[in-house]
Design a protein around this nucleic acid. Structure first.
Lengths: 110, 110
DNA sequence: TGGCTTGTTGGCTATATTGCCAAATAGCTA
DNA sequence: TAGCTATTTGGCAATATAGCCAACAAGCCA
């Protein structure tokens, strides 16, 4: 049952795992607007260039972005723009957590 | 820019991270069909009960599932059924990887 | 009560991830 | 060629994750 599906589920998990970091989500959101070079992303994120480069590498290996070297800059773009549609549902999860939190506060009388 | 959005992005990342494991994806797929007790899931997954229980705990803490104790069994169900809509896009990523792979094989003449 | 079943938690080890610095690579320009 | 900029890679320390076993909690039934 599970063993039969494990290979596919692992492949899916790998994609989700690649997205599961605030910096990488930020990069994805930026790339929805259009391609960006590593230096632009690095400026916005405010981390070491090597750190940003490794995050991009994670996204590339997962098949989420692809890159294009022009001159001495490397431009990244989304391979699969529908990625952004994920967030509607993720937001639903966050909202349902918020409701719980509100209910808890209410139960405690705050 | 990034710093301002970081808290929200971290919250989203937490949800994605909770989903990013083959066993937990399997659990989610099962729960789409309806609620399940820990023992049923454990049978299907074939791991130690404690391992499955901890995966369920990760999903619960992320707000993805909720539980309901009845007798000496605990039943889990999805809190946010739209979770399943994620996979269309994840699948697109996997397909575009497969196309690359085919292109590579073709370029090598296989 | 005693024993069985169902789940959760603590503890441990093995493994993976994150982010920094330093070093290496590659393209541009003088 | 020398020097500068842009990016990637290696290495390291700190931290997090996965999965097993053992121990514990709670409900059921004889």
């Amino acid at each position: 049952m599970y063993q039969e599906r494990k290979a596919l589920l692992n492949a899916r998990a790998k994609v989700l795992k690649a997205m599961a970091h605030s910096t990488r989500l930020f990069i994805i959101e930026e790339l929805v607007k259009g391609e960006r070079c590593v230096c632009d992303l690095t400026d916005q994120i405010g981390a070491d260039v090597s750190t940003v480069s490794k995050h991009l590498s994670v996204l590339r290996q997962a098949g989420i972005v692809c890159d294009d070297k022009r001159g001495n800059q490397v431009f990244y773009r989304l391979r699969v723009p529908c990625i952004i549609n994920f967030f509607g549902c993720v937001e639903s999860v966050l909202e349902s957590q918020a409701q719980d939190h509100a209910a808890t506060l209410s139960a405690v009388g705050k």
